[in-house]
Nucleic acid binder design. Structure first.
Length: 398
RNA sequence: GGACAGGUGGGUGAGUGGUUAAAGCCAACAGACUGUAAAUCUGUCACUCCUUGCGAGUUACGAAGGUUCGAAUCCUUCCCUGUCCA
């Protein structure tokens, strides 16, 4: 068998800073005095990640609809997500490991964050059973039973080789009782401790991080209690999970507000699974550095495009003869070359290229928003940016 | 000219006396989507009216008649399509 080794040098040359690139480290560059919004850099063994950052979701080691080439080139993404549960089932973490690790396997030389499978506790509700020790999953592919523990989730992520591993957590639906949320939160804390002990035992060089996840449903006291417990782990970063599971938007932001101030100032904060474009500044304004969401990619495939002036559901009949680009102020390949009418045609015709163009556009939109925010924070103009956004999206945020 | 087989809503295609304004699929239209069981899913899809109800009325299964309490379904005639035979 031919030796397969990741080849990072060419891709990373420009991304390397003056720091020890083998060590995972967060560098805070600016903090908005009025809101607490932050700009920084996440230094990883696979390149620097400027924050605040939006991470495209590539569950099965692929961001649906586009190629790593698009992510590297046009989008210039610095980090993507992949999923422990899905890659464990198929093709199997050992297979990925044997083939040189996830970066090499999916031809993605930059940073990768792997989710632990905690979200699948929520989304595969009918196929799993949670115990104090872990989660039984019945594979959605063939019905096989698999038991995930905090330790095994770390092992799978170690085999995959991601820079940022997530501790196994229990993501609850909404609404649940305070008591159910408390029991679940305590389980998530225990799991985080187990994950952490295992992570510490198995990693030595500091090149890879593991983030615990704050849970507690929509109860501020539980959220705070959870965060305080997790602080004892002295993790290199913290996530807030269990948001956007059906609750009113105001509640998700309220929970973020309750938790973020408790988290270490010098560590990145990750709000998992958010959000709509107009929500992103709201999280950043509450001190969030990292976000991810399937919306730009999934909605793209469903004909729903995000623009600087609102949504364009390009599959609608009203765009049948529309020669305009999706977003006239967008510089993406899709908007530079194709009309709404053409995109609508591709969608209705079921052409695969629609997904590619639409996803490319939506991710461009998300990245533009993140870039604008970062620049505003660095320039000390984030409050103005935020106020302008609020005016623009007054109704959306109701 | 003869013998069969057929003609159903935008398309396809079920339905052989009443629960049929007519299944299913497709198309079309609208909506949903937030750490992806998603190139997925949901709804609408003859017209009119209102007290929006498993409401009322009108029109509709090639055309026109007929049988029947009741017809897309049975009968008669006609028109059209396909295949085969002359």
């Amino acid at each position: 068998m031919r030796a397969i080794r990741p080849q990072h040098s060419t891709h990373l040359a420009h991304a390397r800073g003056p720091y020890n690139e083998s060590v995972f480290r967060f560098e805070l560059q600016a903090v908005c005095k009025e809101t607490g919004a932050r700009a920084g850099v996440l230094h990883t063994a696979h390149g620097d990640v400027e924050t605040p950052v939006f991470m495209p979701v590539g569950t099965q080691a692929a961001v649906k609809g586009i190629l790593p080439r698009d992510l590297l080139g046009d989008l210039d993404a610095k980090i993507v997500l992949a999923n422990t549960y899905h890659l464990f089932l198929r093709p199997g973490h050992e297979t990925v490991h044997k083939l040189g690790g996830l970066h090499h396997f999916m031809a993605w030389p930059r940073a990768i964050l792997t989710d632990s499978g905690g979200f699948q506790v929520f989304s595969l509700d009918s196929l799993r059973k949670v115990t104090d020790q872990g989660v039984w999953f019945r594979s959605h592919l063939n019905g096989d039973s698999h038991f995930f523990t905090p330790e095994s989730a770390i092992d799978v992520q170690l085999a995959l080789g991601s820079e940022i591993m997530m501790a196994l957590d229990e993501c609850l639906p909404y609404p649940v009782s305070h008591e159910a949320a408390r029991v679940s939160m305590e389980r998530t804390v225990n799991w985080a401790r187990c994950s952490y002990a295992h992570y510490r035992a198995r990693t030595t060089d500091g090149s890879r991080a593991c983030f615990p996840i704050v849970q507690g449903s929509m109860f501020a006291d539980l959220r705070r209690g959870c965060a305080e417990e997790l602080l004892n782990l002295d993790a290199p970063g913290y996530a807030i999970g269990g948001l956007s599971v059906g609750e009113p938007r105001a509640l998700s932001l309220e929970m973020t507000e309750a938790v973020a101030p408790l988290l270490p100032r010098d560590r990145p904060r990750y709000a998992m699974g958010v959000g709509m474009p107009e929500e992103l500044p709201q999280y950043v304004a509450r001190g969030i550095d990292m976000m991810d969401c399937v919306l730009p990619s999934r909605n793209a495939r469903n004909g729903y495009l995000f623009t600087s002036t609102g949504r364009v559901i390009v599959k609608q009949a009203q765009y049948k003869d529309d020669p305009k680009p999706v977003d006239e102020s967008c510089r993406c390949y899709c908007c530079r070359n194709f009309s709404r009418a053409y995109l609508r045609h591709l969608f209705l015709a079921g052409e695969i290229s629609f997904a590619t163009l639409a996803t490319l556009h939506n991710l461009t939109r998300y990245f533009d928003i993140m870039r604008e925010m970062r620049q505003a924070i660095l320039a000390g103009k984030f409050p103005e940016y935020l106020r302008a956004q609020l005016l623009l999206h007054h109704q959306d945020l109701e």
